[in-house]
Each structure stands twice: as structure tokens, then as C-alpha cells.
Write a protein that binds this DNA or RNA. Structure first.
Length: 157
DNA sequence: GCCAACGTTGGC
DNA sequence: GCCAACGTTGGC
């Protein structure tokens, strides 16, 4: 089992949107970065745990935990000229871009804002907190995962 | 809205 | 293969 952090702008797709989705499942379309794609393709497995992070929010924050329920498959939004994620280089025959499905698991109450994360001992090396870090799908170490969970004790149920 | 950091594109 | 120009991300 691996741990991840996935970013979404709440204006585009929010934590509330995930909770309101059918089955509380969504496909994670729109990843258009090779490093993030490769992580999904090569390392992300069904059952993996995901921190759902709001970027471009006030404050940016970890909103809750989701899990991977379907491993990487072709992102068909890339085939659709009317989609904001259209990429003519990707075709059904040779898909370039991939997505996974994730499902709501539980809320983190209250959400853990970026300013709070920056104060937590032991998280200094977390990718999210590095200057210029933009990767929208990031691995999270088991140590960092545990530290962050401990910030909201009792959230396990 | 600003802008630093980063990734991609394309001319050469 | 280099690298300048450009577009995007995302915190502030």
C-alpha cells in the first residue's frame, strides 16, 4: 500500500464534489504532466490512500482521505475536442494520458491548511512544502502520512 | 492580480 | 541538443 497526495482546485473539482458524486467515486481526468502520469501508471495501486488537497484555495488545505479504486486507464477526455483537457497527440489507439478512479473515504475535520502543515515537525521534507513544487500527484511517505493523521486524532473511525 | 518556478515547444 | 520564448501552476 502506498500513500499519495492529489491536488485539485476547488473551483474545478472540490472535496464536496467528490462526496456528492455517484458512489462518491470520480475519475481523475486532466493530468497533463508526464511525471504525474508516470506515478499513476507505474506506482499507484488499487487500495492506495490519498490525501485530497485543495490548491488555489483560502487556505490551500488537505480536505480528507480518498482511496484508489481503479488503476490507471486511458483518459478519454484527451480525445474530446470540446474538452478543456483535449490533446490531439493522444488517441484511443495510442493514449498518452491516463487517469485513475478515487473514492471518498473520510473527512479530515477541520481541514489541515498549508500554513499549519508548514509548522509541523517532521514534515519539512514533504514534497508539497518544497518551494516551486507543482506536481499534482505526489507520493507521501508512510512517516509523513502518520504524522499528518496524528494532527487530527480520532478521525480514524 | 502578481509573479516565481517549472514544464513544454520549436527554431536553429 | 541547446535554449529562449511561452504557457501554466499555485502561493500569496
Amino acid at each position: 500500500m502506498q500513500y499519495w497526495l492529489m491536488k485539485s482546485e476547488p473551483n474545478t473539482f472540490s472535496w464536496a464534489d467528490l462526496k456528492a458524486a455517484p458512489g462518491q467515486i470520480t475519475c481523475w481526468e486532466g493530468v497533463r504532466n508526464y511525471q504525474a502520469r508516470n506515478l499513476m501508471r507505474d506506482a499507484m495501486k488499487q487500495g492506495d490512500q490519498v490525501f485530497f488537497y485543495h490548491s488555489n484555495a483560502n487556505p490551500p488545505a488537505i480536505m480528507g482521505i480518498a482511496k484508489v479504486v481503479r488503476e490507471a486507464y486511458a483518459d478519454h477526455f484527451a480525445f474530446d475536442p470540446s474538452s478543456r483537457y483535449y490533446d490531439p497527440k493522444s488517441t484511443p489507439e495510442k493514449p498518452i494520458w491516463l487517469m485513475v478512479d478515487i473514492q471518498y473515504e473520510r473527512d479530515i475535520i477541520p481541514p489541515i491548511g498549508l500554513p499549519e502543515l508548514r509548522t509541523v515537525p517532521g514534515l519539512e521534507s514533504m514534497m508539497l512544502l518544497q518551494k516551486g513544487s507543482r506536481l499534482s500527484v505526489q507520493p507521501v511517505t508512510p512517516q509523513a502520512w502518520e504524522i499528518i493523521q496524528q494532527l487530527r486524532p480520532g478521525g480514524q473511525t
